[in-house]
């Protein structure tokens, strides 16, 4: 089982420290190329005009907020089934990043919607699903923040993540159904198989750059999380070893 070799947090820290500079470099290069192409090279869309440039952020962000949830769901399986010690670290570190990308997808979506739909917020099926996803991310973060013990919080969050992952297709389906029931098909359809290659290339590069960015941030956040657990363990040990000695001297330290 090769995966278990990286189960050791210390080994993971060393390995991630070696990978990170390369990943960061690749991410910066991909963003430089992608931003240059999407802002200066890509032509306007015949329907959306220049606002198609917003899509170069919106689509990668929307892709990432789903990828992040998938990674969290996989990590949760790792926590519950394989009891991998890094799995809940990975899930916890991914949640705020996923929430941030979801927020970006929502904001860019509504900034695109204002010129296109004439309103900042349309209860459009896709936007609504993304909003529900943001709620789920924030709920998970809240759960992690309210539980003191990281191991127990990790397990509780893993269960919630998996129930959410089971629920997401149902939510998607029901929101789509709800939308077709309530809305006439007047809103322009964005996704189609006939996307011009000149528009597609920058989009793919931006998606690659964003994915790299996610992994850079995720690895760093995981390192932070491992350090946080170390600090917590050391604090607990420090408290338990010093308390008997100081008990007589300072009775005020009753915590």
């Amino acid at each position: 089982m090769a995966l278990l070799d990286y189960a050791n947090p210390t080994r993971f820290l060393r390995l991630s420290q070696r990978i990170l500079p390369w990943l960061t470099g690749a991410c910066v290069i991909a963003f430089a190329v992608g931003l240059y192409m999407s802002l200066f090279v890509a032509p306007e869309d015949y329907q959306q005009g220049q606002t198609v440039k917003i899509m170069y952020i919106h689509v990668p962000a929307a892709w990432l907020c789903m990828m992040t949830y998938s990674i969290m769901a996989l990590s949760s399986l790792g926590t519950l089934v394989w009891k991998h010690p890094l799995a809940d670290v990975s899930a916890k570190a991914a949640a705020p990043i996923g929430a941030a990308f979801t927020l970006i997808a929502l904001i860019t979506g509504s900034l695109w919607g204002r010129p296109m739909w004439g309103t900042y917020w349309e209860w459009d099926a896709r936007m609504t699903s993304v909003l529900v996803l943001l709620l789920m991310y924030l709920g998970l973060i809240a759960l992690w923040r309210t539980m003191e013990d990281p191991i127990k919080a990790g397990k509780a969050a893993a269960i919630l993540t998996l129930v959410g992952a089971l629920n997401l297709p149902i939510i998607k389906f029901s929101v789509d159904w709800w939308y077709t029931l309530h809305q006439p098909a007047s809103v322009m359809r964005m996704d189609g198989p006939t996307i011009h290659p000149a528009l597609l290339t920058p989009l793919l590069i931006m998606a690659l750059a964003s994915t790299l960015l996610f992994f850079v941030l995720h690895l760093q956040a995981m390192q932070n999380e491992i350090m946080r657990r170390r600090v917590r363990a050391l604090r607990l040990r420090a408290a338990s070893s010093t308390r008997p000695a100081r008990m007589t001297a300072t009775s005020t330290a009753a915590e």
């Binding site: 220049q50 606002t51 440039k53 917003i54 952020i57």
Partner: peptide, 20 residues
């Protein structure tokens, strides 16, 4: 030249950059 909706494009890129 980003056309009549330049401010929306700038805002989208700016806010995304801020969040990241």
């Amino acid at each position: 030249d980003f056309g009549p909706y330049a401010s929306f494009i700038y805002a989208a890129y700016g806010i995304s950059a801020l969040i990241i």
